[in-house]
């Protein structure tokens, strides 16, 4: 009896040690081998073409579109995302500053939602790192939608169509803050405008832009505009101060809190009047311009940029040439 018990124990011990060893073998410490370099250095074009397609799930995009146009996101069901980001108007509302709930006016110009996913950060001051983070802003702002996530979720939960769609696309989570944000952000990521005439030119179709527009492009480079307005979105990937050579805010007068720009996020003196460089894609149809929306025409925007950033007054003919180039950046929505 005792011998049998001892044998059983010895077997159990052996099994236990084998288990310990196999556990160590199955869960090795993290490897020290270098991760493969996934980046290429094919980065020599200052402006690059927008990809022809987006990589978002079409069903999620469709749900995001429903939400984007749904006024239930606001407290009194009067304002939707599309109220300030009109897709028939370049993804903007065409106003100096937007009008929110109870017709309250905002403090800053609404940037376009078109190609917004190509921006490295969201808002003029870059306070949101992602499109998902950005959505918190208008939902909770008392002058925009004046709502809250619990209110939005309650409203959407009472709508069978949303219940059904969220259950199908997010079976584990259903309608939550994160799934709503994911759907809207996916829709926004789908709002790319490829195949502008300039993109076709970049892709090798040399006659896609005419001689005047090419001259405008050359001036755009020679005046150094391209130093900030570069990359796939012709901007949107860095911060810059407005008024390198002259003080734009002082000349305009009536400084506001919004004029502080990036300073509001970082509280650094050097970030005063610093803003995310706006992308120039579809610039022809996204006026009025600048963070304050005070500049009504593209010609005026070019003149002011030349004066405040370079310290020069551009001759009219050069302004026209640069504007003619900028108009070649208008693309076509992928949907």
């Amino acid at each position: 009896m005792l011998l049998r018990t001892t044998v059983i124990f010895l077997c159990l011990f052996s099994g236990y040690f084998i288990f310990l060893q196999s556990n160590a073998l199955l869960n090795p410490p993290p490897s020290h081998s270098a991760k493969q370099n996934i980046y290429t250095l094919n980065n020599n074009h200052r402006i690059t073409a927008i990809p022809d397609t987006h990589s978002q799930n079409e069903e999620v995009v469709a749900l995001g579109k429903l939400l984007f146009f749904d006024t239930r996101l606001s407290k009194n069901n009067s304002v939707s995302c599309a109220s300030c980001h009109n897709l028939h108007n370049g993804g903007v509302d065409g106003l100096e500053v937007s009008s929110g709930i109870f017709n309250q006016t905002g403090t800053i110009n609404s940037p376009t939602v078109l190609n917004s996913s190509l921006n490295f950060k969201q808002f003029w001051d870059g306070r949101a790192n992602t499109l998902e983070d950005q959505i918190d802003g208008p939902i909770n702002s008392p002058i925009e939608m004046n709502s809250s996530w619990p209110q939005v979720i309650t409203k959407l939960n009472s709508h069978p169509r949303y219940l059904e769609k969220f259950a199908a696309l997010y079976p584990l989570s259903g309608i939550t803050k994160n799934t709503i944000k994911n759907a809207i952000a996916s829709y926004e990521r789908s709002l790319l405008t490829p195949n502008s005439r300039f993109d076709l030119f970049l892709k090798g179709q040399k006659d896609a832009i005419n001689a005047t527009e090419k001259q405008g492009y050359q001036l755009f480079i020679n005046y150094g505009c391209i130093a900030c307005h570069q990359g796939v979105n012709a901007g949107g990937n860095m911060f810059s101060k407005i008024g390198i050579m002259h003080d734009y805010i002082a000349d305009r007068g009536n400084p506001t809190k919004a004029d502080l720009g990036r300073y509001q996020v970082t509280q650094k003196e050097t970030d005063k009047n610093v803003f995310k460089v706006p992308g120039l894609r579809n610039i022809e149809i996204t006026g009025p311009y600048f963070h304050d929306g005070k500049v009504k025409t593209l010609e005026s925007a070019v003149e002011k940029m030349a004066y405040y950033q370079l310290g020069i007054e551009l001759p009219d003919n050069e302004v026209k040439l640069i504007v003619s180039f900028l108009k070649t950046l208008t693309g076509k929505l992928t949907q």
Partner: peptide, 11 residues
Amino acid sequence: INNNYDQLTEL
């Protein structure tokens, strides 16, 4: 050599 900030921004 690099003329735009897209790659640096992504990193």
